[in-house]
Lab assay of single mutants.
Amino acid sequence: AEKTGIVNVSSSLNVREGASTSSKVIGSLSGNTKVTIVGEEGAFYKIEYKGSHGYVAKEYIKDIKDE
């Protein structure tokens, strides 16, 4: 049951290796980017990222929809 969301930041949002603010940053997404959410862990969504997965803070994702 995948969902999509939109990155809701003015600059960019860090994509992390794990569901923690201390996890390594593996990339970033600019505002209004559409993401595919494959799961959630605590305050983070697990998303599809560059052929693999990454984690982003839930508070910066809006317009969550079921695909």
Rank of each mutant, 00 (worst) to 15 (best):
S22T: 12
S30N: 14
Y49E: 01
V38Y: 07
N14W: 11
V56L: 04
G5W: 03
E40V: 08
S22M: 13
I6E: 04
S10R: 09
H53P: 05
S12L: 11
S52Q: 13
D66P: 11
V38W: 09
T36E: 05
I64Y: 09
K62F: 10
L13A: 15
K3M: 08
V56S: 01
K3F: 06
V38A: 05
G51L: 08
V9L: 08
Y45V: 03
G31A: 15
E67D: 12
I26T: 03
G18C: 09
S20I: 06
S10D: 13
L29E: 01
H53K: 06
L13E: 03
G18D: 09
I47R: 00
K24A: 13
T4S: 12
S22A: 12
I64P: 06
T21W: 11
S12E: 14
T21I: 15
L29S: 01
E41C: 07
Y49H: 04
T4W: 06
S23Y: 05
G5D: 02
S22G: 14
G42D: 10
N14H: 13
S52Y: 09
A57C: 06
Y60L: 07
E41D: 12
K46Y: 08
G39D: 09
D63Y: 14
K50P: 02
E48N: 15
K58P: 01
V35W: 02
V25A: 05
K62V: 14
I37F: 01
S20K: 07
F44W: 14
T36S: 09
V35G: 00
S28C: 06
G27P: 00
T36D: 05
N14M: 15
G18Y: 14
F44H: 04
E17D: 15
D63E: 15
Y55P: 00
I6Q: 05
N32F: 09
G27S: 02
E59G: 07
K50F: 09
S11I: 12
G18T: 15
E40H: 06
K50G: 14
Y60C: 06
G5S: 03
S22F: 08
E59P: 06
K58C: 04
H53V: 13
T36V: 12
T33R: 05
R16V: 07
V56M: 02
L29F: 04
S20M: 06
G54P: 01
S28D: 07
V25H: 04
G27W: 05
E48Y: 14
E17F: 09
K58W: 03
K65S: 14
V9E: 07
S10C: 09
Y55L: 01
G51C: 07
I64K: 05
S11Y: 10
E41W: 08
S23P: 01
G42Q: 06
S28E: 12
S52N: 14
S12Q: 11
I47V: 06
D63L: 14
K24V: 09
S23Q: 04
A19Y: 04
L13R: 02
V38G: 02
Y55W: 12
A1S: 15
F44D: 03
I47S: 00
S12C: 08
V7D: 02
G5T: 04
N8P: 04
S11M: 13
V56D: 00
K58F: 03
N14G: 08
D66S: 14
K65C: 06
I61C: 02
S12Y: 12
E40R: 04
S23N: 04
K34I: 13
Y60M: 10
Y49C: 03
G31C: 06
K24S: 07
S20W: 08
S52L: 12
V7L: 05
F44M: 04
A43E: 13
H53S: 07
A43H: 11
G31S: 14
A19R: 03
G51H: 09
N32D: 11
I26F: 03
L29K: 01
A1N: 13
E40S: 07
I26R: 03
S28P: 04
V15I: 07
A57E: 15
F44P: 00
I37E: 00
T33I: 10
G54T: 01
S11K: 14
I37L: 04
V7H: 02
L29Q: 02
K46S: 03
L29P: 00
G42W: 04
I61G: 01
E2R: 07
E48C: 08
I47F: 01
K65H: 11
K50Q: 14
G42H: 07
K24E: 09
N14L: 11
E17T: 06
Y49V: 03
D63F: 10
K46H: 05
E41H: 10
T36H: 12
G54W: 02
S52F: 12
R16L: 15
S52H: 14
D63T: 12
G54K: 02
N32S: 08
S52W: 09
S10L: 10
L29D: 00
E17H: 09
L29I: 11
S11A: 09
Y45N: 01
K46G: 02
V56R: 00
K50W: 07
S28W: 11
S23V: 03
G31R: 15
T4V: 11
A1Q: 14
A1Y: 11
E48R: 13
E48D: 14
I61H: 01
G42S: 06
E48T: 11
N32W: 09
L29T: 01
N14V: 15
S10P: 08
I61R: 01
F44S: 03
I64F: 09
H53T: 11
G54L: 02
V15E: 00
K3N: 04
V9R: 07
E41N: 09
I26Y: 02
K46A: 06
K24H: 08
K65D: 10
I37H: 00
G31K: 11
Y60I: 03
N8A: 14
D63R: 08
Y60G: 10
A1T: 09
A1G: 14
K3P: 04
N8D: 09
Y55T: 00
